[in-house]
């Protein structure tokens, strides 16, 4: 149940891994699509938190090309519906997320990423 809404907020938390540690890269993923309630106000409020490029890239990697490369100025309904789908309806069920910097792999099993660190990785 990692969705892109949380993937977009998640950086690597291994000790000393403080730069170039976002976004985590998906590998060997299986996804499921599940409907969620459309809430335009939530989406608008959430947009300032997003790293747009990371979101577009991750969505494309998961097979969704509905988002424009540049954040549009006008937030029309079509755009918000696509954003809704990308953020909240695509569930990554299996696979791994790899830190681009330290290469730590966070495995995803049954939709749950394992964020536990080894002893030498704890800050």
């Amino acid at each position: 149940m990692v969705r892109l809404i949380t993937h977009n907020l998640l950086a690597c938390h291994v000790k000393g891994c403080n730069s170039n540690n976002f976004p985590l890269e998906f590998k060997d993923v299986q996804i499921e699509l599940r409907e969620a309630e459309f809430n335009p106000d939530f989406l608008k409020g959430f947009m300032p938190k997003l790293e747009w490029k990371a979101l577009v890239d991750a969505a494309r990697q998961l097979g969704d090309t509905s988002l424009p490369l540049e954040l549009p100025e006008m937030l029309d309904d079509d755009f918000l519906k696509n954003l809704h789908h990308v953020l909240l309806e695509i569930h990554v069920e299996e696979g791994t997320m790899t830190c681009p910097n330290c290469k730590h792999e966070y495995p995803i099993l049954n939709g749950i990423p394992n964020m536990l660190l080894a002893e030498h990785e704890i800050g």
Binding site: I5, T6, L9, K49, I112, M115, L116
Partner: peptide, 17 residues
Amino acid sequence: DLFLQDIGQGFGFRPGS
């Protein structure tokens, strides 16, 4: 969204998440 995590090891969420 659920995560298997030990909160004593800290979080990696970006600022202001």
